[in-house]
């Protein structure tokens, strides 16, 4: 057998679909907090991601930082998922989404309505209302939510075809705070693409999310704030691919007691 063919990852033929758009990489990467634009670009390339999150901020006449950033993203040829980060009311989030749609030319929006400052926990009531308004207006909403099933149901009723529950508070790096809740969500919405968004700190956290059957992982700080963001981007790509492969491979069942893996039959008797 050709060794090269043998080593090809099966994940290459395993796309995920968000609102009719197929992507192969199951890593969605944020673009904030990198040491430099060059390292950001290199990390995006190393991650293999096809979707990056972006934002809208005030442009100053002199610096025009936004223009060069946008050029960099366009040169990389990745899809953008604009966010409504920092929005605290439905009105703010909806207006920001409308401005993002015009600016980035995409109906996609990562909808954030923040309800609490210490945890940056979503205001799920505002989130559902904003999602309803935006989907009615033709947006394809990726809601940043919690693992609450009732909220998730209401988001789906509002027209969301993707759900993005948090792993842990944004930027905390704590990993999956509530694996049971995330597992319940996966079981409850077998047909909806689910993305763990926020709180992931290590590649093992991302692999764990994938092993729970999640379709993708969205992260930013874990890569941007690593000592070597490019290398960490590569590590996350490998972990997410591994977790996905594991789910497809159908893991063994956990048991309480030991079960010898080496055959017992034919064992020599060597004691006195």
């Amino acid at each position: 057998m050709d060794a090269m063919t043998h080593n090809l990852p099966a994940a290459a033929a395993d796309p995920v679909t968000f609102y009719g758009t197929e992507v192969t990489s199951r890593l969605l990467l944020g673009t904030a907090q990198y040491p430099s634009p060059a390292i950001l670009a290199e990390a995006i390339r190393a991650s293999g991601t096809e979707i990056v999150t972006v934002s809208l901020r005030r442009e100053s006449g002199a610096a025009k930082a936004g223009q060069s950033f946008w050029q960099l993203i366009r040169d990389l040829g990745v899809k953008v998922l604009p966010n409504t980060a920092g929005c605290r009311t439905v009105k703010e989030a909806v207006t920001t989404a409308e401005m993002a749609r015009e600016l980035f030319g995409t109906p996609w929006v990562k909808l954030e309505v923040i309800g609490e400052d210490d945890t940056l926990q979503p205001d799920v009531f505002g989130l559902v209302e904003a999602a309803r308004i935006l989907t009615r207006d033709g947006f394809q909403v990726f809601p940043y939510t919690t693992e609450d099933l009732v909220v998730a149901e209401k988001l789906v009723s509002a027209g969301c075809e993707v759900l993005m529950p948090w792993g842990a508070p944004i930027g905390s790096g704590r990993g999956l705070n509530n694996p049971y809740g995330l597992r319940s969500m996966r079981a409850h919405f077998p047909g909806i693409p689910l993305v763990v968004d926020a709180g992931v700190g290590l590649p093992s956290h991302a692999a764990a999310a994938m092993e729970l059957g999640y379709d993708a992982v969205l992260l930013n700080t874990a890569v941007a704030k690593a000592g070597d963001p490019v290398r960490m981007a590569r590590a996350f790509a490998a972990a997410i691919a591994a977790g996905r492969e594991a789910v497809i491979a159908d893991p063994m069942e956990v048991r309480d007691m030991a079960a010898p893996s080496t055959p017992v039959m034919g064992r020599a008797l060597l004691g006195s």
Binding site: Y34, R58, F69, A85
Partner: peptide, 10 residues
């Protein structure tokens, strides 16, 4: 007046 441009985001 608000004038907003593409910017880095998570």
């Amino acid at each position: 007046v608000e004038i907003l441009a593409p910017m880095q985001g998570g």
